[in-house]
Simulated assay, not measured.
Amino acid sequence: MSTSADPLAALASLPGVAESVDSMRKAVDRVYGHRVMRRRSAEITSEAALRGARGSAALSGADWALEEVRRRTDFGAEAEARTVGAALRMTAEAGQLLSIWRQSPLRVLARLHLVAAGGAAGAADGQAAGAAVGDTVGRPRLAGEPVDEPLVELPLPDAGEVAGRLDGLSRLLLAGSKAPALVTAAVVHGELLALRPFGTYNGLVARTAERIVLIGSGLDPKAICPPEVGHAELGRAAYVAALDGYASGTPEGMAAWIAHCGRAVELGVRESTAVCEALQRGAA
């Protein structure tokens, strides 16, 4: 497949992207080679899911301490709690959606939004199911429907543009690409944030979709490298600035966004490496 027929591969050739991919790949390989992973990988996966959900919720305005997220059982009391609950449910759901993603990414996005809004069977709390607003949950927004995503201040595409670009993204993913997983994950993440296709929870959906691409690609099959941790650690201002680069469509902006996402994965790796070290010492 030529780069002209493979836009994602063309992005992989932008200046600096290969270096970001290589640095991230080496970091991932190191944590997978940790001796603790041979015996206790399930514990690392579980902890990475918890920390990833916490990081994603923090970027959406619910910046809770990790131990608070770990301790709480009721996530329907107020807006921040609902955001944390949504992030936890989506992270738990992500691993179950890999086969569907390969066949229909749009179905997975709809499912993620349904889970975020608490409309899924077996939602973590009963009250959250009531947060679903009419028939707007689990489908892209229609003309005139509002969007609640205060972190992203980019111009909001209209519903027609959203539908067209979602269809284009789906076709791109289904066609396959020779591009590294980081490039594909960054484009999925950036495009969903730029479009904000749903009325709520777009940031959570976009970051979970990034996670699904990284897991499903084989880069992070055990889901132990949570990029959400890194995005939160890098901070909301850097996140928004990098997203502006993606939305600009310039080679420099796109490369900067991909590099930002790569750095986020590396920081997620660092977090899981620290968990491995703690388990090795018997401290966690």
Rank of each mutant, 00 (worst) to 15 (best):
T3C: 10
S4D: 05
P7I: 11
A18L: 11
A27N: 05
V28E: 00
R30Q: 14
R30C: 12
R35Y: 14
M37Y: 12
R40Q: 12
R40V: 02
I44M: 06
A48R: 00
L50A: 02
G61Y: 00
D63A: 13
E68Y: 05
D74A: 12
D74Y: 07
F75M: 02
E78I: 00
R82C: 00
E93G: 07
Q96R: 14
L97Y: 12
Q103W: 01
G126R: 09
D135C: 15
G138T: 08
A143Y: 06
A143K: 06
P155R: 03
L156K: 15
G160M: 02
G160K: 05
G168Y: 10
L182R: 02
L182I: 15
T184W: 09
A186R: 03
A186T: 09
L192F: 07
L192N: 06
L193N: 04
R196V: 10
N202M: 14
G203F: 02
E210F: 02
P221E: 15
V229M: 11
G230Q: 11
A232V: 14
A232N: 07
E233L: 13
E233H: 10
R236P: 11
A237P: 03
L243V: 08
L243G: 03
G245D: 14
Y246C: 01
T250I: 01
E252R: 13
W257P: 13
W257A: 06
H260W: 13
H260F: 09
E266P: 03
V269T: 08
R270D: 12
A278Y: 14
A278W: 12
